[in-house]
Design a protein around this nucleic acid. Sequence first.
DNA 1: ACCTGAACACCGTTCAAGT
DNA 2: ACCTGAACACCGTTCAAGT
Lengths: 165, 165
Amino acid sequence: MSDGVAEVKITRLCEQLGVTKGSFYWHFADIDELMTAIADRWVETQNEVLRGLMQVESMPVAERLQTISELLVEHRTRTVEAAIREWARTNARVADAVRELDQRIFDLVRSALLDWGFGQDDARLRAGLLVYAGIGFVHAGNNLPTPTRAEIQALFRLVVGDEPA
Amino acid sequence: MSDGVAEVKITRLCEQLGVTKGSFYWHFADIDELMTAIADRWVETQNEVLRGLMQVESMPVAERLQTISELLVEHRTRTVEAAIREWARTNARVADAVRELDQRIFDLVRSALLDWGFGQDDARLRAGLLVYAGIGFVHAGNNLPTPTRAEIQALFRLVVGDEPA
DNA sequence: ACCTGAACACCGTTCAAGT
DNA sequence: ACCTGAACACCGTTCAAGT
């Protein structure tokens, strides 16, 4: 999957499964339906991740911000996520899922900043900055010197401040 | 081009040009060579843009930061740029070009921040934050409420400060 | 209900033959 | 030097026929 979703060939798939291509078309109408199925699968996985993320909500603000700052630039799934976001450009289903993911993360960060003491506008803007930077890092993380964990926290503190606003 | 580089079919190309596919293979070894040619073309265009960007260097710091803040989130070429960055995932030539572009922009911002009065580390981190946010915006700009020009400047001031450091 | 086999369209690629 | 035409491989898709 990390080499891009365009590399999924139904011929190869059937070879690997030891069935003929005709068999494939009993289960799926066409390759697009397969893709949608894969997409749905990914959305489920992502929902679990999100449910995990939401548990962060119960943590005290300071600790919550700390945790979020690490999650945002987590490189564990960088390659896969870049491939998914690429896929979103051509598949509406995936695009929807990615948009919802982005929005939920944004809301998560924003509400944390609200709890931290920022006003509505301020919280929205700063949350946007952080989320966009995280997404940018997912895409271009290899093009610029990778910041250390400590530097990321320094950046985070820069945007969020040292103490409640 | 904005619908993704995977949609470039040599059959379609030859139809549009009114020649046979055989003719295509006189000019190019294979489809990859065509892609490389297109990539090189884009790199040239990008180099012109960069030369333009470099002229910013001669502006006074305050004005320079102002201009950069607008360039970073310029949505003029958002779709195309997203397609290019997607292409970079599978084409080494394009990947190199994008990396160089990112680095030059990063350097531009960083040196502006140095002139503005930040120390080495501080300038590097803040420049990274801004550049990543700009790239993230290119990719996910439609998923979250688009900030206004004024809000972008507010964000910029947040990272850069109101007066020289 | 699930699979095979053969057929067809489309696209990338090769190459001998034309001018 | 530049192009055509026909051929082939590969992949997506369809469908009649098998169990």
